[in-house]
């Protein structure tokens, strides 16, 4: 499954300062959809370069990080149970406070 992952709001610093990642990932049980829960673990194991606690807390993202699946807040789509499909875009964005 091809997905586009984007890390913004400073999160890219944890991913080698690369904001956009085109990834190829296979759902573990051979299904054609991937749960966000599984995707997060894949990201932690394959993409994350440093300080995992700045990206994740427990099995979810840390407080202050928004997850957007195809421009929609993952809270509206089931959070960790939300699923992504072929060619979907998932954005991880840290809230900013500067001004």
């Amino acid at each position: 499954m091809q997905l586009t992952l984007e890390f913004k709001g400073g999160l890219e610093l944890l991913f080698g300062s690369v904001k956009v990642h085109q990834i190829e990932v296979e759902p573990s049980d051979g299904k054609d959809k991937l749960k966000l829960q599984e995707l997060l673990i894949w990201v932690r194991n394959h993409l994350l370069k440093e300080r995992p606690e700045m990206f994740m807390k427990g099995n979810s993202v840390r407080p202050g990080v928004l997850v957007l699946i195809n421009d929609c807040d993952w809270e509206l789509l089931g959070q960790l149970d939300a699923v992504v499909d072929e060619k979907d875009t998932v954005v991880f964005i840290s809230t900013l406070h500067g001004g």
Binding site: G10, E53, M54, R62, P63, G64, V65, L66, S94, T95, H97, G98, G99
Partner: peptide
């Protein structure tokens, strides 16, 4: 509603 729990202070960068 969006951020019920604040981020860890280390995650907060300033200008």
């Amino acid at each position: 509603c969006i951020f019920p729990v604040p981020p860890p202070p280390d995650a907060c960068q300033s200008c």
